[in-house]
Computed example of a mutant assay.
Amino acid sequence: MFGDLGHGTIVMLFGIWMIKNEREFLRQKSDNEIWNIFFGGRYVITLLGIFSMYAGFVYNDIFSKSMSLQWWQFHPAFSPELHKSEDVMTKELFDIHPLVGRGYKFGIHPIWTMASNKIMYENSLKMKLSIIIGIGHMIFGILLSFANHL
């Protein structure tokens, strides 16, 4: 669910709905413990949805399906015009001829959906990105703590 554009959109919309109806929900006192926990974390839930959408763009994932960002102004290095579709579908290995100066600028290239080692590659990449982002967050927290200490 995390790192998925579709699920992130649903989570973000749920958080925005709670924020939009905040006054009405505050007037109604609820004894439902689960609802109180969700409502108490409405801003965090909205941010989780936003960052999940961002990670979905990076991983090119929407509802666990790969998406191609070619409709955006990105020009992928793999051009279907350079390869015959029967070559792509029948050959186990083939060369990709990159277009000069037109690399895939954002996210995972859609050609990885056809690779035999797709799962290993994507899981490895996601783990490495998670560690890098996590270390960045920890360093940022330490710097904020140091600034508060001063």
Rank of each mutant, 00 (worst) to 15 (best):
L93I: 13
L13I: 15
G15T: 01
H83A: 05
I10E: 08
W72S: 15
D87A: 00
W71D: 14
L93M: 11
L99K: 09
I96Q: 02
I10F: 14
T46K: 02
I96Y: 02
D4W: 02
A55H: 11
I111S: 08
T113P: 00
Y121K: 13
S124F: 08
Q70G: 15
P76W: 03
A115N: 14
Q28C: 00
G101D: 11
I45K: 07
W17V: 12
K128H: 08
S79W: 03
T113C: 00
G15R: 08
L5F: 15
H137Q: 05
M12H: 03
I108Y: 08
P98C: 04
G103D: 14
H137S: 06
H83E: 10
G141H: 03
G134Q: 12
L13P: 04
N32E: 09
I132N: 10
M120N: 13
V11S: 11
F78Y: 15
A55S: 09
F14R: 00
E92K: 15
M127K: 14
I111E: 13
T9F: 13
A77L: 07
G15D: 06
I111D: 08
G49C: 05
F63Y: 15
G107D: 01
F39D: 02
E122H: 05
F25V: 10
F51T: 15
W17P: 00
L93T: 12
M138T: 11
Q28D: 12
D31G: 09
F74S: 03
S79A: 03
L82W: 00
K118H: 07
W35I: 08
V100D: 08
E24G: 06
S79I: 01
Y104V: 08
I135G: 07
T46A: 11
M89V: 12
I108A: 10
K128W: 09
L93Q: 12
G136E: 07
R42V: 04
S30I: 01
I19P: 00
V58T: 06
M127N: 04
